[in-house]
Amino acid sequence: MENRYSRQTLFQPIGQFGQRQLTEAHAVIIGCGALGSAISETLVRAGIGKVTLADRDYVEASNLQRQQLFNEADAKGSVPKVVAAERRLRSIRENVEIRTVLDHVDGPILEEISQDADLLLDATDNFETRLLINDAAWKLNIPWIYGAVVGSSGSAFPFIPGETPCFRCLLPVLPAVNETCDTVGVIAPAVQISAAHQSAEALKWLTGNTSAMRTKLLHFDVWNNTSVEAGISRMKNPDCETCGSHPTYPALHAQSGTQYAVLCGRDTVQIIPDADRELTVADGVRVARQLGMKYRETPFFVEFHAENYRCILFDNGRLLIHGLKDMRTGRKLYHSLFG
């Protein structure tokens, strides 16, 4: 694979020096859906040393329209996204180091996987996880690159501790109702533009071209051919819990006990058992058999149908109940199955 980076080292701001820095860099990419697929592929092709991919989900047919690392076989096999992603990335470049995290990312997990990271990349689909990334980035003093997309619109911006206000300054209160890809759709070109801007900022940071980084938040709409860029320095909150003088990093504090969450726009309730409880795929199979339910076991999870809801139990005990938006019903079902 001689000269595989020649077109990138010819690009003068990167050059041989920047290329060598890339070789030693480690980026943590949180989320491996549309943005995560695109960003991780770009960084791996560019020659990055190591990527960590964290995602809690598996490939479904509706992902294929915009999630470029996955194909029909991945969707048919319900392969976890990080597993399918690693497979494709490995065929693109054999000598890249890839660490995958098939889990719901919370504070302790994010801090752990980010210890030796040069950069965090936001490829999540919700504001809660972005506040988590924001807290981890400021606590560990690592930049993170915001990117988001919905419909034909998208945004991108590099948040840099010590340089810029943080995401919490910009969005101290989370929107109660919010358009998501699952409610108003999304087109692939919008994904690609957001991801490309995130990848470009990542390449700048990782090759030492920090003075080229964007200083205005980009918001574009590729269908209506509009865009706006605006600086955010006036949004700095001196009392911010993340970037103020007495930070508490509230998003990082792990919740204890069993956690229930309605996954944003996914028609899915997620249940994460308390750390003391060891629930595995084997337990799911046993329960499904006891109750005479049909089930399907993959190397990563067991799928079964309980009270007409499609359930996925991962080997770390995380349970997804699809077709359900009501946390109370989810909680009841969980207890009826696993006590």
Binding site: T124, A148, N178, E179, T180, V228
Partner: peptide, 21 residues
Amino acid sequence: RKEDVIQAGDVCAFIPPVSGG
């Protein structure tokens, strides 16, 4: 910021937050 004053001639843009990914 909410309290900032907009003057004649200023160009304003309303930007909704984007959360998908």
